[in-house]
Design a protein around this nucleic acid. Structure first.
Lengths: 211, 211
DNA sequence: GTCTATAGAAGGATAGAC
DNA sequence: GTCTATCCTTCTATAGAC
């Protein structure tokens, strides 16, 4: 419905984009092939011409979106800068990324929880050696200075990531409890303020963390 | 399927419990009335005898679960104790609550995001005056000592809550990135360690927060 | 490649017997 | 209250014309 089907050969792309939208909004079980076809400006038959089944189309979309999310996180965490700089940069860039993709976290988390097999595709993508290096090794010295032991690293990492992801995942709960940031504009302002709040908060915690 | 239908009159309860299970696992669109009937040990016709439609059954379940979650949070935050004590108690009790209801957060967040009208039922339940008092007023003095202005309170509250909720919502992501806590037992241990980690972390941040 | 028309399966809901 | 049988709508998927 977005625009009439032109006869150029980008139908596949239009389908993919429409599918990404619909799946993100409604989830796998809630999505309808009809709606995807409508948004792509074609009909169901043509949809099946490009993607043989709903499941196949979903898989294609899901893996791209999952990758998008992880790559954003990875690309920042894998840079060769200090933990402190990394933290600041992560919050800055990841919150902007989330503002552009606010539905991504609930979608990914929900689908993943309903079908853990979806994680398979990603495991190949991850270099666990590098990941462990990023998480446990590279900043060990700097963080030891803050009293953070190797053992605390998983707690710290989950904490850092939660600062940017959680408010988007819990968007509608926040809306209930704090109606003052019900509209998107105010919420985004709140999230932009969160960049420095989070950065200051975490650094303050580290500097004062009991050794 | 759980157990054969006994002729005692607790069918309604059995249906409700089965429905809660299935909806929590599969979500509204993914749940099947057949599966609910099976788990309750009855058939679809009888299911419709007690609850006229899927939507009605869902509403009943959803509101109970949403209430369960909010009441747990509220009951702790509304106590007349210092912020520091409240924080400790909240993390202690809420993480135990989450361990018992690990699927609750994604379920609630996902359904709420797909159907914001679901929040309506809750709004009546909330006393916004009391809520604002809890969040903005009651601890103003204590928190001012930590350099937290009234303006920062929404940031702080979301942060506190995220410490216990986020890891459960992101359970399957964590599983991917940190396979070492793939199994439930290790994950629960991790979460129990998080009680004191979070408490220490937050208090350290507050004590060191720039004024 | 794209469409119309339709098959075929699944799922929510109801009729009616016991 | 509980069951069997069945209706009817919705949805995925395919056949076949252009």
């Amino acid at each position: 419905m977005t625009r009439p089907a032109t006869s150029d050969n980008q139908t596949r792309q239009r389908i993919f984009r429409a599918a990404a939208e619909v799946f993100e909004e409604k989830g796998y079980t809630g999505a309808r092939m009809q709606e995807i076809a409508d948004r792509a400006g074609i009909n169901k038959a043509l949809l099946h011409y490009y993607y043989s089944s709903k499941e196949q189309l979903f898989m294609a979309v899901f893996h791209v979106l999952l990758k998008k999310m992880f790559e954003k996180i990875f690309s920042i965490f894998s840079e060769e800068i200090s933990f402190k700089e990394k933290l600041k940069k992560f919050l800055e860039e990841h919150i902007e990324f989330m503002i552009k993709n606010p539905k991504l976290p609930i979608f990914l988390l929900n689908e993943l929880s309903q079908n853990p097999a979806l994680a398979e595709g990603l495991k190949e993508m991850i270099n666990y050696g590098e990941l462990r290096d990023m998480i446990y090794t590279r900043h060990a010295k700097e963080l030891k200075g803050y009293g953070i032991k190797k053992n605390d690293m998983p707690q710290l990492m989950v904490t850092v990531v939660s600062f940017s992801i959680f408010p988007f995942a819990a968007r509608d709960m926040i809306k209930i409890m704090m109606p003052e940031m019900g509209d998107t504009k105010k919420f985004n302002t709140y999230m932009r303020e969160r960049k420095s709040f989070a950065s200051d908060f975490i650094m303050a915690a580290l500097k004062h963390h009991k050794k």
